[in-house]
């Protein structure tokens, strides 16, 4: 039976672990965020006195074409990017976890897009997917396709272009997380499965996937959040265009905050974004718990 003192001591030890990170985090991130949350209910241009707005900032969103387009695009982008990245990074990690020659090389190579500066790779990507003279369309022409996609310049293809680019850029990043997860699987499990005479797919399905469920959950949550927060990729590849075809929520936030200097309205959009992420994450938490 632990005494009360010992209990308090235990608590203090725990807090001492958290303190170094939490103090920095609270001061430099949490406080500004709380302030930003409050802004959603205020009118502020970053300079003049702050005024009370109540729910007006949210009400205005109901009739805001920019916001509506951005909301729809963000959901489409997330729904497209999350599963594609998840599957391809898992696939890549499993491939690279085999004892094959040159896997260090392949591992390094697949991490390249992630480490490279976005400014540079976006320029290259745009060149390669250039609708009229890019090598991708040139190849499609020679293969006999008549109607080649307009990629970033076509309303219907722009989002697909952004999604493909995101998968390409971030696949390596999540592949690394999966690799670390794969390293954590006890090899005895595979040995046991081998003795049972299972094939590769069965081992993948009944050993790898369940053993990776914690990693998958982590990857899924991070990916979802990252997708909802996408901004720089869109900025570099399509600037939200053509028209509003790839305008996403953070892009709208940026416009509202730094073009109109309507910080309250920008915060209101952020709250919607935040609520979306929260809902999706909670659903994932639920699913995760059920699985375990």
């Amino acid at each position: 039976m632990p005494s009360k003192q010992a209990h308090i001591r235990k608590q203090l030890v725990a807090y001492s672990f958290i303190a170094p990170n939490f103090i920095g985090f609270a001061v430099f991130t949490l406080v500004p965020i709380v302030f930003a949350v409050a802004l959603a209910f205020l009118y502020w241009d970053g300079s003049n006195p702050i005024e009370w707005a109540g729910l007006a900032n949210f009400r205005d969103l109901l009739d805001d074409d920019q916001f509506k387009a951005a909301l729809k695009n963000t959901i489409v982008y997330t729904a497209g990017t999350v599963p594609l990245t998840l599957i391809s990074s898992l696939f890549l990690a499993v491939l690279l976890n085999q004892g094959i020659k040159g896997r260090n090389f392949f591992r390094t190579v697949s991490f390249f897009p992630y480490v490279a500066s976005l400014v540079a790779v976006a320029a290259v990507w745009n060149m390669i997917f250039n609708p009229s003279k890019g090598p991708v369309n040139m190849l499609l022409y020679t293969l006999g396709f008549e109607n080649v996609p307009g990629w970033a310049a076509d309303k219907d293809w722009a989002m697909i272009t952004i999604i493909l680019f995101s998968v390409w850029k971030y696949m390596g990043y999540y592949m690394i997380i999966y690799l670390a997860g794969l390293q954590g699987i006890n090899p005895e499990l595979y040995e046991a499965a081998n003795l049972d005479g299972t094939n590769a797919w069965q081992r993948f399905r009944y050993v790898t996937v369940p053993q990776l469920s914690a990693t998958t959950f982590f990857v899924m949550v991070m990916l979802t959040i990252q997708c909802f927060k996408v901004y720089d990729i869109v900025y570099m590849v399509t600037q939200g265009g053509p028209g509003t075809a790839t305008l996403v929520l953070v892009y709208d936030i940026y416009n509202k905050a730094f073009i109109s200097w309507n910080l309250g309205s920008a915060s209101a959009v952020a709250m919607v974004l935040f609520a979306l992420v929260l809902i999706v994450t909670l659903i994932q938490f639920r699913g995760n718990r059920k699985l375990q």
Binding site: I33, F35, A270
Partner: peptide
């Protein structure tokens, strides 16, 4: 609760609190 606080802020785009943070810094 604290952990939720951490996770929740991951979801917050930096552009949202960039200005308050800048003024504070």
């Amino acid at each position: 609760l604290l952990f939720l606080g951490y996770v929740a802020t991951i979801a917050m785009p930096w552009q949202v609190y960039m200005v308050p943070q800048f003024i504070m810094m």
